[in-house]
């Protein structure tokens, strides 16, 4: 039991000294995960649209060549960034750019580097998710849109992607939660996230386990909050399960509706009936 008391005391000690850096770490982690997921989703959606532009043998060869090229480029992008660890991608870009350009091209801050890495990494996953989302929408929806004269982009933006977005909401949520946790690897380029706060705290205090406990609780709180938020967003997207009839004629609108009189008012039919039969009060 006194071990727990000691843990509590250690955590209190840590929090007193490093509370500010833990909290700013949480803030940075959330911002990075959120921005990275949003930009990653945008990349995914753009890849999804480009990937599904239809072409057939009646189109001119240049258009066909470009569309085929786009698909190959997206394929390579997805395979490379999905197939390598994010921690290495961060090192590769952050140190690789100045290495190859003799310091003329480099990231101005670790923030820019971290956001770019998380975004393109998420984008690679989302490109596949969006592709799946688009496939899952009934092909009849595309035909319906085409039949009223919509172009490919109009069809995608107005009809297919809103439905695909709803279908892949759970995956977007997945990606966001993974990003909350996996941005912890960004300490490698010196990004001040929640996990970096842990490294700084234990480096000075050697309280490894108490700090790890703080981290566990912190990450779990963030991901649980994210889960709740996403569920709420999904419900919001589904909209009302009922609809209201619209009648021009107001009499038709109100006919058949009956607002019940409040209990024990003179108009309460039920109350009267019970009183007449002498059964007394309604329970």
């Amino acid at each position: 039991m006194n071990k727990f008391a000691q843990l509590g005391a250690d955590i209190a000690k840590l929090w007193l000294k490093y509370g500010g850096s833990y909290l700013s770490g949480i803030k940075n982690t959330l911002i990075l995960a959120l921005v990275g997921t949003v930009i990653g989703c945008l990349i995914g959606f753009i890849c999804g649209i480009l990937n599904t532009i239809p072409y057939n043998k009646n189109d001119n060869p240049i258009k066909r060549f470009f569309l085929a090229l786009i698909r190959i480029v997206i394929r390579v992008y997805v395979e490379v960034f999905r197939g390598t660890p994010m921690v290495l991608q961060a090192v590769f870009l952050y140190y690789g750019l100045p290495y190859f350009t003799n310091n003329s091209v480099k990231f101005s801050s670790v923030w820019a580097a971290a956001i770019v890495v998380v975004s393109i990494n998420t984008g690679a996953y989302m490109a596949e998710s969006v592709r799946g989302g688009i496939i899952s929408v009934d092909p009849g929806q595309t035909e319906g849109a085409k039949a009223i004269g919509m172009t490919h982009v109009q069809t995608m933006v107005n009809v297919i992607l809103p439905q695909a977005l709803r279908n892949i909401m759970p995956q977007i949520g997945n990606n966001f939660i993974i990003n909350v946790k996996d941005t912890s690897v960004m300490f490698i380029i010196g990004f001040p996230d929640f996990f970096a706060a842990h490294r700084a705290a234990v480096g000075a205090s050697y309280l490894y386990f108490p700090s790890a406990t703080v981290e566990m609780a912190g990450y779990l709180t963030m991901t649980l909050a994210a889960s709740l938020l996403l569920r709420w967003a999904e419900k919001k997207m589904d909209g009302n399960s009922s609809y209201e009839l619209v009648q021009e004629d107001q009499l038709v609108m109100t006919a058949g509706t009956y607002s019940y009189p409040s209990r024990h008012s003179p108009f309460d039919e039920q109350n009267k009936e019970y009183d007449q039969t002498g059964k007394g009060k309604v329970n």
């Binding site: 009934d138 009849g140 929806q141 035909e143 319906g144 849109a145 085409k146 039949a147 009223i148 004269g149 919509m150 172009t151 107005n158 009809v159 809103p162 439905q163 709803r166 609809y243």
Partner: peptide, 22 residues
């Protein structure tokens, strides 16, 4: 094709109403 289809309406066996709209 798009501007041509705008002038030639089509009604499908499976309706194909846009599910995400009223």
């Amino acid at each position: 094709a798009a501007s041509y289809r705008a002038k030639v309406g089509m009604v499908f066996q499976s309706f194909n109403l846009f599910n995400n709209m009223t």
